[in-house]
Amino acid sequence: TLFEALYDYEARTEDDLSFHKGEKFQILNSSEGDWWEVRSLTTGETGYIPSPYLA
Protein backbone atom coordinates (compact mmCIF):
# COMPACT_ATOMS: atom_id res chain seq x y z
CA THR A 1 0.00 0.00 0.00
CA LEU A 2 1.30 3.46 -0.90
CA PHE A 3 0.77 6.62 1.14
CA GLU A 4 1.55 10.30 0.50
CA ALA A 5 2.96 12.82 2.98
CA LEU A 6 0.54 15.59 3.96
CA TYR A 7 3.25 17.73 5.60
CA ASP A 8 7.01 18.16 5.82
CA TYR A 9 8.75 16.37 8.71
CA GLU A 10 12.27 16.74 10.10
CA ALA A 11 13.73 13.59 11.73
CA ARG A 12 14.28 13.86 15.49
CA THR A 13 16.17 10.59 16.02
CA GLU A 14 18.45 8.45 13.86
CA ASP A 15 15.57 5.98 13.33
CA ASP A 16 13.21 8.67 12.00
CA LEU A 17 13.00 9.61 8.33
CA SER A 18 12.82 13.23 7.17
CA PHE A 19 10.44 13.89 4.28
CA HIS A 20 8.60 16.56 2.32
CA LYS A 21 4.92 17.11 1.60
CA GLY A 22 3.86 15.08 -1.43
CA GLU A 23 6.54 12.40 -1.00
CA LYS A 24 5.23 8.85 -1.48
CA PHE A 25 5.97 5.88 0.76
CA GLN A 26 5.65 2.11 0.85
CA ILE A 27 4.64 0.88 4.31
CA LEU A 28 6.99 -1.80 5.66
CA ASN A 29 5.58 -2.13 9.20
CA SER A 30 2.51 -0.42 10.69
CA SER A 31 2.33 -2.44 13.92
CA GLU A 32 4.20 0.16 16.04
CA GLY A 33 1.18 2.35 16.79
CA ASP A 34 1.45 5.88 15.38
CA TRP A 35 5.00 5.36 14.08
CA TRP A 36 5.23 3.38 10.86
CA GLU A 37 8.34 1.98 9.23
CA VAL A 38 8.36 3.07 5.59
CA ARG A 39 10.48 3.22 2.44
CA SER A 40 10.52 6.49 0.54
CA LEU A 41 9.80 6.00 -3.16
CA THR A 42 11.71 9.25 -3.80
CA THR A 43 14.98 8.52 -1.97
CA GLY A 44 14.81 4.76 -1.32
CA GLU A 45 15.64 5.42 2.36
CA THR A 46 13.82 3.60 5.15
CA GLY A 47 12.87 4.79 8.62
CA TYR A 48 10.03 5.59 10.99
CA ILE A 49 7.56 8.41 10.39
CA PRO A 50 4.43 9.59 12.25
CA SER A 51 1.41 7.97 10.58
CA PRO A 52 -0.87 11.03 11.08
CA TYR A 53 1.36 12.80 8.52
CA LEU A 54 0.24 10.34 5.80
CA ALA A 55 -2.84 9.98 3.63
Rank of each mutant, 00 (worst) to 15 (best):
38 V>F: 15
19 F>Q: 02
3 F>K: 02
48 Y>A: 02
18 S>R: 03
22 G>P: 01
49 I>N: 00
49 I>Y: 00
42 T>R: 14
12 R>T: 12
15 D>Q: 12
6 L>N: 06
38 V>S: 00
23 E>P: 01
50 P>R: 09
11 A>K: 07
55 A>R: 09
46 T>N: 03
52 P>E: 15
44 G>F: 04
28 L>W: 00
21 K>S: 05
23 E>F: 02
14 E>F: 12
54 L>W: 09
11 A>S: 14
16 D>R: 13
3 F>S: 02
47 G>N: 01
16 D>E: 15
11 A>H: 03
7 Y>R: 06
22 G>S: 02
15 D>T: 13
51 S>L: 05
51 S>V: 07
14 E>W: 07
41 L>H: 03
34 D>F: 13
31 S>K: 08
22 G>Y: 06
28 L>N: 01
50 P>M: 10
44 G>T: 01
24 K>W: 15
18 S>L: 04
14 E>A: 12
49 I>L: 03
45 E>K: 13
31 S>I: 08
42 T>K: 11
7 Y>T: 05
22 G>H: 03
48 Y>R: 13
45 E>V: 09
26 Q>P: 01
41 L>R: 01
38 V>I: 02
6 L>D: 07
50 P>A: 06
24 K>D: 01
48 Y>D: 00
5 A>F: 13
33 G>F: 07
4 E>Q: 08
25 F>M: 04
12 R>M: 10
17 L>I: 10
44 G>K: 01
32 E>P: 08
16 D>Y: 13
53 Y>D: 09
43 T>W: 01
37 E>I: 11
42 T>Y: 06
12 R>D: 07
47 G>P: 00
28 L>T: 03
13 T>K: 11
50 P>W: 15
25 F>L: 06
3 F>D: 14
53 Y>L: 13
14 E>P: 11
44 G>M: 05
1 T>C: 15
27 I>N: 00
33 G>Q: 09
29 N>G: 09
40 S>H: 07
28 L>F: 05
24 K>E: 04
25 F>Q: 01
29 N>A: 08
28 L>P: 00
21 K>R: 09
29 N>Q: 06
49 I>P: 00
12 R>G: 07
10 E>R: 09
1 T>N: 11
25 F>G: 01
17 L>P: 02
12 R>W: 13
23 E>G: 15
21 K>F: 13
37 E>V: 10
20 H>P: 06
1 T>H: 11
55 A>H: 11
18 S>W: 05
52 P>Q: 15
16 D>L: 11
10 E>W: 08
44 G>D: 02
45 E>R: 13
10 E>V: 12
7 Y>E: 06
47 G>S: 15
36 W>R: 00
35 W>Y: 09
16 D>F: 14
27 I>Y: 04
4 E>N: 03
25 F>R: 14
17 L>T: 15
17 L>C: 06
51 S>E: 04
29 N>C: 09
41 L>V: 08
4 E>Y: 15
29 N>W: 05
52 P>W: 15
52 P>K: 15
52 P>L: 14
25 F>W: 01
37 E>Y: 15
33 G>C: 12
2 L>E: 07
36 W>V: 06
2 L>Q: 06
31 S>N: 08
15 D>E: 14
25 F>D: 01
42 T>H: 08
31 S>L: 09
11 A>C: 08
31 S>T: 09
23 E>A: 03
48 Y>H: 05
15 D>W: 15
14 E>Q: 11
37 E>G: 01
44 G>Q: 04
30 S>I: 11
10 E>G: 03
25 F>K: 02
40 S>G: 02
11 A>M: 03
29 N>D: 10
48 Y>S: 03
55 A>Q: 13
36 W>M: 13
26 Q>M: 12
35 W>I: 08
14 E>K: 12
1 T>A: 12
26 Q>D: 14
50 P>F: 15
35 W>K: 08
3 F>H: 05
33 G>Y: 08
41 L>G: 01
12 R>E: 09
32 E>V: 09
5 A>K: 02
3 F>C: 10
5 A>H: 05
1 T>F: 12
24 K>Q: 10
5 A>T: 04
27 I>R: 04
37 E>L: 15
33 G>S: 10
40 S>V: 03
20 H>Y: 10
44 G>I: 15
27 I>E: 15
43 T>D: 02
37 E>D: 00
22 G>L: 01
8 D>Y: 04
31 S>F: 08
24 K>L: 14
23 E>M: 03
18 S>Y: 04
3 F>P: 01
45 E>P: 00
22 G>R: 01
33 G>E: 10
50 P>E: 07
23 E>H: 05
55 A>L: 09
34 D>S: 08
54 L>Q: 07
54 L>S: 07
40 S>Y: 03
52 P>F: 15
55 A>G: 11
39 R>K: 09
55 A>V: 12
4 E>M: 08
40 S>L: 05
15 D>S: 13
32 E>T: 10
5 A>P: 03
30 S>V: 10
20 H>Q: 10
13 T>L: 09
53 Y>Q: 11
37 E>K: 13
39 R>C: 05
20 H>W: 05
39 R>F: 05
16 D>S: 13
53 Y>C: 15
29 N>E: 05
8 D>N: 06
50 P>N: 14
47 G>V: 03
36 W>N: 00
25 F>P: 15
48 Y>K: 11
51 S>R: 09
33 G>K: 09
32 E>H: 12
38 V>H: 00
54 L>F: 07
3 F>I: 05
43 T>P: 00
19 F>L: 04
49 I>A: 10
5 A>Q: 02
42 T>V: 09
53 Y>M: 12
8 D>R: 15
46 T>M: 06
2 L>N: 04
50 P>T: 07
7 Y>I: 07
3 F>N: 09
41 L>P: 01
11 A>G: 12
2 L>F: 13
30 S>T: 12
11 A>V: 14
41 L>S: 02
6 L>R: 06
55 A>Y: 05
36 W>L: 06
27 I>K: 05
43 T>Q: 01
37 E>P: 01
43 T>V: 00
46 T>F: 06
40 S>A: 07
36 W>Q: 00
53 Y>E: 10
54 L>C: 10
51 S>T: 06
27 I>P: 01
31 S>M: 09
8 D>G: 04
35 W>Q: 10
18 S>V: 05
42 T>P: 00
46 T>C: 06
21 K>N: 03
40 S>R: 12
32 E>Q: 13
36 W>Y: 04
9 Y>M: 03
45 E>D: 07
21 K>M: 06
46 T>V: 12
14 E>I: 09
10 E>N: 08
30 S>P: 05
47 G>K: 04
8 D>S: 06
3 F>R: 09
28 L>D: 01
3 F>Y: 12
13 T>M: 10
31 S>Q: 09
48 Y>C: 10
4 E>P: 01
41 L>T: 05
7 Y>F: 10
46 T>W: 06
6 L>W: 11
25 F>C: 04
53 Y>S: 13
9 Y>Q: 02
17 L>N: 00
39 R>V: 07
49 I>W: 02
50 P>Q: 07
53 Y>F: 11
1 T>I: 13
55 A>D: 12
38 V>K: 00
14 E>Y: 09
3 F>M: 07
42 T>L: 13
16 D>C: 14
34 D>T: 08
12 R>C: 13
33 G>P: 11
3 F>Q: 02
42 T>I: 08
34 D>E: 10
29 N>H: 11
35 W>N: 11
37 E>Q: 13
39 R>P: 00
51 S>C: 11
46 T>Y: 04
29 N>Y: 04
17 L>W: 05
45 E>L: 14
27 I>Q: 02
23 E>K: 00
54 L>I: 09
26 Q>A: 08
1 T>V: 15
5 A>S: 04
34 D>P: 07
35 W>E: 03
6 L>H: 05
27 I>G: 01
40 S>T: 14
12 R>N: 09
26 Q>R: 05
54 L>M: 07
40 S>K: 10
29 N>K: 05
15 D>C: 15
22 G>D: 03
